[in-house]
Computed example of a mutant assay.
Amino acid sequence: MANEAGKTGRSGWETAVSRTMPYPGSRVWEFLVGDGVEIWLGPGVELPRERGAGYETEHGTTGEIRSYSEDRVRLTWRPTDWDHDSLLELEVADLGKRSTLKIRQERLADVAEKAEQRAYWKQVVERVEAALAER
């Protein structure tokens, strides 16, 4: 039997969204890890950069940094109403005058959570692009 779309044997359900934007990668990345962190991670938190560092947003979402580089961050992500951690990755691919923002989330509980998170991350990408356009 074939795997259902978005389900892997190793990490359960996963989803991903991406968007190419008319901004250099450095501009997108600096926004994501600076003023724009609230858009994707949540209000009231600064993004830690050290592996193993924990965070908690004003809304109670918690997690831990797994890796951090100049164009990618991997962290655990757990809202207050979940009974499990997911693994979240944000990456910016620099294409010169443009860049692609990629968001991938693994270890989702089921197909419903996958659909919910895909819709959420699509909104996040739209909000990031709109905020960059205003700057």
Score class of each variant (00 low, 15 high):
E38N: 11
E56V: 15
D81S: 11
P43A: 15
T76H: 02
S86T: 15
Y55G: 13
G52D: 04
P43G: 08
R135N: 07
Y68A: 10
R107F: 06
R27W: 00
I103R: 00
Q117H: 09
R72G: 03
K97E: 13
R104T: 11
I39R: 05
E116W: 04
E14T: 00
S11P: 01
A5I: 03
A112Q: 10
E64L: 13
E14Y: 07
R127Y: 02
D71V: 01
W77M: 05
G6A: 05
L88F: 09
N3Y: 03
G36W: 02
E89M: 15
A119M: 08
A119P: 01
V37A: 14
E50G: 09
G25Y: 05
V37G: 02
P24C: 07
E116P: 02
T20M: 06
E129L: 10
Q117E: 10
E30F: 03
T62N: 10
E134D: 14
A115E: 12
V124E: 06
T76S: 14
S18Q: 13
R107G: 02
R135M: 13
G96W: 10
R78T: 12
E70W: 03
V111I: 07
G6P: 00
E4K: 13
E30M: 03
T100H: 05
K122P: 01
R66C: 09
I39A: 05
V92L: 04
K122A: 13
D71A: 14
T62S: 15
V33K: 01
M21W: 04
L87K: 09
R19K: 14
Y68L: 07
L41C: 06
A131Y: 00
A115N: 08
L41Y: 01
T100C: 10
T100R: 14
S18R: 11
D83Q: 14
A112F: 06
A119C: 02
L87H: 11
P43C: 04
H84Y: 12
I103F: 03
